[in-house]
Every structure is written in C-alpha cells, then in structure tokens.
Nucleic acid binder design. Structure first.
Length: 796
RNA sequence: GCCCGAGUGGUGGAAUGGUAGACGCGGCGGACUCAAAAUCCGUUGGUAGCAAUACCAUGUCGGUUCAAGUCCGACCUCGGGCACCA
C-alpha cells in the first residue's frame, strides 16, 4: 500500500475510534501535555510548528501506552493584529479569514497524525470562549484589579494602535518595525505590579527550566534598596528617591527628577523656568528609542532648587534629566557621581562635585559601586563595608523618619486596551451620570458587530467607535443613554487562560469547573517557543494567580514544567522567511516523503532545544530508515520471545527510548532505534516479538507505518496496547570491550566479562603487547580498574 | 554594558569525569544495471607509515585529577534577550 493510503487509513481509524479522547474523571493517572496553540496565519503550518507538535505528540503517545490518561489538546489563538491584517489585506472579514485558516491548519495537523483530542478544540475568537475572557475581565474589575488611567503609551503610527512596553521593545513596533512615539491615552490597566512578588515566589512551585525561570525573574526585575526622603530648601514639599545603595548617601552631590516628575513645575525657580520648560518640551518629542540612543551624551537642566541631604543637611542642586525614568522607582534619584557611571558622566559635564565615599582600593572610581569596599568621607559609616553600611544607614533613615527599606520592581501594570477591531470587546459601559459600569453577566458575550469596516482609524480610536449602533447602549445602573467601551483586549488575553478551558471546554455555566480543574490539576508539560517564555508565561501566571486568589482555580500555579524548543532554520542557517526564499512547506514534504518521514526527521534533526537548519538530504536519511524498517518485515518469523542474541540490545533500547522521550532526547531516541534496526538487519531472521517491540518503540515517532506493519502481522493496534517493559538486569552487556590506558593514554582494548574479577582484568591489561611496550622499564605506581569501564596503569 | 545559550570531522549532531566523533547526511571505492535511480557491501578527523603503530585533535590559555569535550579560573568568537531600572 502506498504511504498516503496508509496514513489516511490510520488517521481515519483514530478519528472514528476517538482513540485520543481524554476522559475527565478517569481513574487512570491524568497527564496534561500542552503545546502552545498557534495563530492560524494565512501562510499555514510552519515546519517549526511540526517540530514541537511532533515532539509532544511522541511524548503523549508513549504516555498513553504507559497507562496515563493523557490530555493533549489543540486550539487556535486567532485574535490579534496578524489575523486582522491578513483580513484587511485580503478584503475579507477577520471572522471568515480565521475560519478559513483554522480549517487549513487543522487539515495539516490531521495529515501529520497528531494525537490531539479534537473534541476539546476551540478558538479564542469563539463567542463561547471569549464570553469567559470577558467574564474574567469583569472579575478583575470587581476586585479592583482593572482600572482606567491616562498614561503615556507607546503608539505605533503605522499600525495605529497602542503597544505594550513588551510589544515595543527597543522603541520600535514589534510587528511592523515602525518607530514608536509617545502619546497620552486613557487605557484600561490590570494591576499586575501588585503580583510582582507572588509571581517571583510562585516560581518555586514550578519545575520550569532554569533559563525560563531566569527570564521570568529578569522581567519582574526585583531590586532591594531604600527610599530616601529629601526635603527641598525653602519649600514644604519633599520628594523621595529609590536607591539600592543608601550607604553612599554621603556621596550624593545632586539629585535628578525625571522631566515628567510632578514637582518640577512647583520647585523650578523663576530664573530657570524658561530653560526647564524648553527641556521638558524637547523630551516629549523624543521617544524611547531616541532617549536610549542618546545615552552617550547626558543632557539636563538645573531647576534652581536645592534638596537637603538628610545625613549632613547639605544643600545639593536638583536637576531634571531624561536619564531618569519617570516610570521606574519614584521618578527621582540621588546622584552619587563617584560611584555610578551615569552620575559620573552627568556630574563631569555640569561641573558638579564628586565625593568618593568608598575606598575600593582600585583606581577606577566607578568600580566601587558594584564591588565592595570600606566607607570613607561618610561620617558614621566610615570603616564599614557595603553590607554593614547599608544596615547602619537604614537604621539612621528610619530613626530620623527620612527613609526606609524599599523593594522595587521593573514590572509594571499591564496596559490592557488596544484600539483594534479584532479582539475581545471590553465589557464596560460609560454613563455620563454613573461613570464606568460593568455589563451584566447575563448579557455576555458582548459580540463583535458584523460590519464591513474594521480598518483602524487615523484618530487612534478603535474601529468600533465608528459603529454607533453598537456603541450606543443604555446604562445598566440608571437605564439612561450610555456608550460602550470601544477598545478591545490585547491578544495576550485569550492565551492567558486557554489551558484551563481545555480541561473543561464545553462548560456553558463556568469557564471551567473546579472539579475538572482539580482532576487535571496542572499542566504537566508545557512546550513553546523561547520568544513566549517571558511575557506570555508571565501574563498567564498572573491571570491564574488572580483567579486563585478569588477562589476560582485550585492551584496558584497551574503549569508545572515549561520547556522551549529551538527554531527550524532554513537550509542556509537563516530564519525561514518568504523574502529569503528558504521556506519549507510541510505539505510538500508530506506529499513527497510521507508524514512519518517528516515527523521522524523533525525529531532527529538535532538537539530539540536548539535551533537547527533544515536539510532535505538528512530528511531522506529518515525515509531510508523507515523503508528499512518496512523491509525488515520480510525477515520476520514466528516467535513470541526475543531472539537471545538480541535480548540485551532490546532491553537497552526500551530503556533508552523511554528515558529520551521523557527528557526531550528525541534525536538520540531515534538514533537508538536506528541502532536496533541495524542489529536486526545483521540477522537472517527476527521473531515477531523482536519486530513488534521495534514497531512499538517507533510508534510515537512514526505512528502510521508502524500501525500498518503491526496490523499486517495480525495484531491489534499499537496505540491501544501497552508500552514494552525492560528488565534492568538485561540491559547490561555480559561481555564488553574496555580501554586500557597507560598514564591516561589509550594503548589497547580488552574484552571483559561481567563477572570476572579485577585481578583477571588487570592481567589481561598487563599482557597486551602494546601495553607492555609502554610500561617496559618503568615502575608501576598503581593500577586503576573500573569494572566494565576502564583500566588505567600509572607508571613512572 | 548586563543576563542567558552555544563553540566538537566536510555536515546535523553523540558522549553518568572513563576507548571523543554514537547515529545520520555528504564524500570516496565497489556490487547489481545496457545505463540511471533505488538498494546493498566497504571506507571516511588530521599528519607520518606498507603496516603494527605514533603524534596531533572538542574556540584560546592556564589549573584540578590516575584520567577533562565534560569540573575550576581567565579570555576569544558567534547567537539570543534586556538595556540610562538608580
């Protein structure tokens, strides 16, 4: 039978028999394997998707055979700009575009034989799904976690939308690369910063890969320091600064406020007013990119005001400068030019005194800030080291009520509004007399209107704003005329809780029942791209922790292990892209070589966690391997036990494949199966038992062809059977070749048997001709014999 | 600048501190064929040698160890992320 027919036959079988249906509440041990659901983009499934789906599919298939109740779901994350832009470009409604693309994706996934439980499929754009995303937003609001604020936002003039800090990293729009500008806008925000510490601590309840944890930690950006309050000479006003090195306070020779700081206008003296105004205006013209690019040359102006250093009552000038960020800490700093590079640069330029307060024993002044040293010129801190200096200073600050210990986080609140059509409408209503009102739960979902115009507006309003029928409504409180919120949610919203919905996807009265969530407990294994391990994961964890705190999910962390895969690059080693012409379409590969070959190659190509270039030649090698497995069938003779000479390698291979599939060692698992196949080929015949164990071990990787070969021998489907067991004892070779070293250099190799004594091994080693040659005339200092591993003869 | 990750044959990559280069690709030689494809057999890190074998070899330089790709210390290169975060 030809490959295509075989694949279709088994795909049909799995579909009809619902082989991969996950039963909530089953007495089997639940095991939840999740792989990031894709954007159904117009270009179809990427070979990179295939790599991770195949990997998790192989794991899922093995786990099922090992008796686990595996939940391996798939869905689509179809809101967001890519889907919207595709729709605009092709002049169809996003809804229809998404429908079409999902169909393509799903068909592609089916032809690859992934064992998803399709009964649980959904898209984030399904009203039955986004109803609950909206419902959860209302919960955020009810618990004071959602609020509206006018904030300077990152605005992409090309996409005509607000971008999150995350979406505009580096000052350019992540999507289109346009320079982002600052714009004041009223936005819905989620109080994510309240969860900074919990999100940090929660990592201890996860088994995330170390680099994933680090990504989260860096993003949260905790720093421990102090808040120091500075009085302003001749004013009642004061301001506080955040510092991690309050022990250097004696070295503070000036202060800097961010240009946006609210005290600037109040404290600026008449003589400096013009200059300050001018500088502030210049700053509004600069976007983040320009601000950071100008980091070589410090700018700023003096306000004319002086702050009083609380440790010595000295008056120090207050400057404004854009090297101080309004959004971090208190938006103000104390500057210690002797020990901070930036302050040093600024002080040098403006001729501000530089007082060294730490003797690091090094000539480079700025070195001391990161290192340790003894305090000098620091009054009561003199002679103390960094650690003691900090505690002594904290004590002083608290006693004199001019400061206290303080923790700061880089992570800020989540800007939750987008001026786009294709997102979940935010279920809020504004009434002139009652203010912001929640929509009634029973009115959810708030559907997106069916209209023809959904292109973004030039004004920065959401396209929804133009649809007056939709916008105008009545106030749920007073019944008077009111308007709907026209912003939609960011596309991170729907993906922040989809893994919960998979646990109970058809629930019509809850987003998921507590019972179902308790049964599945946690996502055991979550696989995705490295590009999502910082933000998506953080948003999802935040969402879950909030739901946990209001009693709606059973665990504070709902994801146990997070791993990430490497990218599949073009054969030129570059990222695949249409413009480079190095894109491989999985459909073409399936057509020419078969799904099993593609699956096998994607796992065999290299270390799963690292990027790897595509090679069609290597792919052919995998085809050759599968063809050899097929041809091996001609050598099969009856027999329900393993061929004695093959027993050891079979047990070894079971152990190896099982271990590797659980630890992302996909390439070495396949290598082991190739070795097993090679050893079968060296035989004149193999038993059915020999052959079937190979088919079963290979089944997670190449499910179609192995099922077919197994069926041809007259057996029930592999996917309904059990995973073979190995006997540890039988994985050990009875006889082995080991190396003999003289002074650490290999000089010979000897055969040893498992039960021979050290003496026998030693004699064998010493009697090797080449060993004799190298120890002749020398004194033997000692002989190291490691049973079954190595002999090393140390001579002098 | 800071934080990750990676440097191993022509190539993708293997190696619980214990015979470096498994397995695959490619190359070379051969068989089959009128020929090609497919398949099969052999060979394949470098240098020297008919060979046995020797020396060199896991980015660089040191160190620990009977033994280092692996551990420690310094450095170099590439990839990714963050970046005036006080």
């Amino acid at each position: 039978m030809e490959t295509k027919k075989i694949e279709e036959k088994w795909q049909k079988y799995w579909g009809e028999h619902k082989t991969f249906k996950a039963e909530t509440g089953s007495s089997k041990e639940p095991y939840y394997i999740l792989v990031e659901f894709p954007y159904p983009s117009g270009s179809g499934l990427h070979v990179g998707h295939v790599r991770s789906y195949t990997a998790q599919d192989a794991m899922a298939r093995m786990m099922r055979m090992q008796g686990k109740n595996v939940l391996f779901p798939m869905g689509f994350d179809a809101f967001g700009a890519p889907a919207e832009q595709y729709a605009i470009k092709n002049h169809i409604h996003p809804k229809d575009a998404v429908k079409e693309n999902i169909k393509t994706f799903k068909n592609q996934m089916k032809t690859l034989g992934f064992s998803f439980d399709w009964d649980r499929e959904f898209s984030t754009t399904d009203p039955e799904y986004y109803k609950w995303t909206q419902w959860q937003f209302l919960e955020f609001y009810k618990h004071g976690m959602a609020y509206k604020a006018t904030v300077p936002v990152n605005w992409c003039p090309n996409c005509k939308t607000v971008l999150s800090n995350e979406d505009s990293a580096g000052g350019v729009c992540e999507r289109c690369g346009t320079q982002v500008v600052q714009k004041e806008k009223s936005q819905w925000m989620l109080r994510m910063s309240d969860y900074a510490e919990d999100l940090l601590q929660g990592l201890n309840d996860t088994n995330f890969a170390e680099k994933v944890k680090l990504g989260q930690i860096n993003w949260i950006g905790k720093s421990i320091g102090a808040e120091v309050i500075f009085k302003i000479a001749g004013h009642d006003e004061n301001f506080s600064v955040f510092t991690t090195r309050c022990d250097t306070l004696f070295g503070a020779t000036y202060c800097v406020l961010a240009p946006e700081h609210k005290l600037v206008d109040i404290i600026t003296t008449k003589e400096h007013k013009d200059e300050v105004e001018k500088y502030k205006y210049e700053c509004t013209l600069k976007n983040d990119l320009e601000r950071t690019e100008l980091n070589k040359e410090k700018t700023g102006v003096f306000t004319g005001a002086y702050a009083i250093n609380p440790v010595n009552n000295e008056e120090i000038p207050i400057y404004i400068s854009d090297y101080v960020l309004a959004s971090y800490g208190t938006g103000a700093i104390m500057a210690v030019p002797a020990h901070d590079e930036r302050d040093f640069e600024f002080a040098t330029k403006f001729n501000i005194p530089i007082i060294q307060v730490i003797d690091s024993g090094q000539s480079e002044l700025t070195e001391a800030y990161t290192g340790d040293g003894v305090h000098i010129n620091s009054g009561f801190l003199n002679g103390l080291n960094k650690e003691d200096g900090i505690s002594a200073m904290l004590e002083f600050l608290e006693e004199n009520k001019c400061g206290k210990k303080q923790v700061n986080y880089k992570m800020r609140d989540w800007i939750f509004s987008r001026q786009r059509f294709w997102g979940e409408p935010i279920p809020m209503i504004y009434c002139e007399s009652c203010g912001w009102q929640l929509m009634n739960e029973e009115d959810l979902p708030l559907l997106l209107p069916d209209v023809a115009e959904y292109e973004p507006t030039d004004t920065g309003e959401s396209p929804l704003a133009k649809i007056t029928d939709w916008v105008n409504t009545t106030c749920p409180k007073c019944g008077g005329p009111a308007k709907r919120e026209t912003d939609t949610m960011p596309n991170w919203a729907g993906s922040s809780w989809y893994f919960l919905r998979f646990m109970d996807p058809h629930n019509t009265h809850e987003f998921a029942s507590m019972e179902a969530m308790k049964y599945w407990n946690k996502v055991n294994w979550y696989n995705g791209g490295m590009e999502h391990t910082a933000r998506h994961l953080l948003y999802a964890r935040f969402w879950v922790q909030f739901l946990y705190n209001i009693g709606l999910v059973p665990n504070k962390e709902m994801i146990w292990t997070r791993v990430s895969h490497g990218m599949v690059l073009g054969s030129d080693g570059q990222k695949m892209s249409k413009s480079k012409g190095n894109v491989i379409n999985p459909d073409d590969i399936v057509k020419e070589y078969g799904a099993d070959t593609l699956r096998c190659y994607e796992l065999f190509m290299g270390d799963y966690e690292l990027d790897c270039p595509w090679s069609t030649d290597s792919l052919k090698g995998c085809k050759r391997f599968l063809d050899r497995v097929i041809r091996l069938k001609d050598k099969v003779v009856e027999g329900d036990s393993y061929t004695p000479e093959l027993e050891t390698i079979i047990h070894k291979t079971i152990k190896k494949v099982e271990y590797d599939l659980r630890h992302m060692g996909y390439n070495t698992a396949i290598s082991a199966l190739m070795i097993l196949t090679n050893s079968y080929e060296a035989k004149d015949s193999v038993t059915e038992a020999d052959y079937r164990v190979l088919l079963t071990l290979l089944n997670p990787v190449a499910p179609h062809i192995t099922e077919e070969l197994n069926a041809q021998l007259g057996y029930a489907p592999i996917c309904e059977g059990e995973w073979p067991k190995y006997d540890e004892e039988k994985t050990i070779d009875k006889e082995k070749e080991i190396g003999v070293q003289v002074n650490g250099k290999i000089r010979a190799s000897i055969k040893v048997s498992i039960d021979e004594s050290e003496e026998v091994t030693k004699d064998k080693a010493l009697n090797e001709e080449n060993v004799k040659k190298h120890i002749e005339g020398k004194e033997i200092v000692k002989i190291i014999v490691l049973k079954g591993r190595i002999v090393n003869i140390v001579v002098k």
